[in-house]
Write a protein that binds this DNA or RNA. Structure first.
Lengths: 237, 237
DNA sequence: CGAGAGCTTGAGAATTCTCAAAGTACGTGG
DNA sequence: CCACGTACTTTGAGAATTCTCAAGCTCTCG
């Protein structure tokens, strides 16, 4: 838990208090359901390793894949308000998670101002990302959506210290397609085209970025990309 | 400020403390810029009356309209993390706003647990809405997007006690189109079709819902709609 | 009342989807 | 260890939305 998310800016004593409320650090496997949509909210989760996906079904039974959770990221935060989880979360890979009781965390926040600040900040980041990413996926060509997706994953991994250009994508093409609002066939065709243009190399579910500049070029092509680079802004947490 | 957002669940003394940090309650007019993308974050805002839109420009200069802010709603929360506003916010109408210094609010939260809880809850609600609404706008026909947009506005207004079926849309067709990722022409054509089917009546920027059931039917038609109705869940704030 | 922005309508163009089928990878069981 | 079955992925061709471009109309505001 040390290098992840929440403890940034805390001193040792406070980190120790935080660790007390981590209720478990469990290992999950591909296909394991971590959260069920509609269940009563009690814990928030952090991914230590592996990957998970959040998805929900609407009234018509259509599945929507909302997001993929990478190591170092939190999920379950959207359920604080309703006190019920709004999404199913499923492990895509062998994954290690830690779980924190939110009420205890909230109580702890009252006595540890820097933790309160950090939690506000993390909630805000989720809002920011939710606002910026969807709109940049929105009025775009399929090519921009997919290149943006790959670039986003790469950025998030690199923000956590992964320096490789390899993207292991444990989710199916169908999952990616659903997440981006495209047909699975379109994903196949585009990945192939990206490979032909020398942007990436495909080995089944391993995508290696060959030319990051070209990838970014695809993203920006007609429009797109965050004009404020949030990761470059000094964050006094 | 009394019946809006933040003070829910606070006692009189705490509400008075909260009112102390409301730095101003200003009147703005259509076209006034309330927040500029990139400016240093200091305040969060609540809409008391009127309407505002959040939008941003990407590196290519393309405008994306992220959301419309209705009376009783907060904006600026996405900037806590980066400490800079990520969006421009512009009044669409004559509007009354209140502004709160976030640092003071945060400090107050440390001493008023119910306020802390309420703020966590409101941040979470924004995350929830950002997660659910975009995906329900995503893999959809233009018809579903637009009917979903109208239905969403109606629900939000009614949640604040507006019982009318009139939707005053102070934004242009172009704004709606941009927000939904469609062409303005498509908005025109669809509104016309909705009117022909008896779902709504159009009078320039005033849309009156004639048949709410039909409107919901359009939304659900191929898929869509939240399966957990967040507003019906008892919320112990 | 006039100018300009905003809105509506039409026709053709383009992307992406749908449907169908073949190919490939992986896990299970023999 | 290999064969088979299943699920996933890729490829192709035609269909359908939605977009783009263009022009006419209308509302608002000075």
């Amino acid at each position: 838990m040390s290098q992840i998310c929440l403890p940034l800016g805390l001193d040792k004593a406070d980190i120790s208090k935080l660790e007390d409320i981590v209720s478990s650090t469990s290992v999950k496997h591909a296909g394991d359901i971590l959260i069920r949509q509609g269940d009563k909210f009690d814990k928030i989760y952090a991914v230590k390793s592996g990957m998970a996906k959040s998805y929900r079904f609407d009234k018509a039974g259509t599945e929507y894949i909302q997001s993929f959770h990478l190591p170092g990221e939190l999920f379950g935060l959207d359920a604080i308000y309703a006190q019920r989880y709004g999404f199913n979360v499923e492990a895509l890979d062998t994954s290690v998670l830690c779980e924190m009781d939110f009420n205890e965390l909230q109580t702890l926040c009252s006595t540890v101002p820097s933790l309160q600040k950090q939690l506000f900040s993390l909630l805000s980041r989720d809002i920011y990302n939710s606002h910026v990413n969807p709109i940049e996926h929105f009025d775009q060509t399929a090519e921009q959506k997919l290149s943006g997706f790959l670039h986003n994953l790469l950025s998030r991994l690199q923000a956590r210290g992964h320096n490789s250009l390899d993207l292991h994508l444990p989710m199916s093409r169908r999952d990616i397609a659903n997440h981006l609002g495209l047909a699975p066939e379109t994903i196949s065709r585009l990945l192939k085209r990206f490979q032909e243009r020398g942007v990436i190399t495909i080995n089944n579910r391993l995508v290696t970025v060959q030319d990051r500049a070209k990838l970014e070029g695809l993203v920006h092509c007609h429009a797109l990309e965050t004009s404020i680079d949030i990761s470059s802004i000094a964050h006094t947490a």
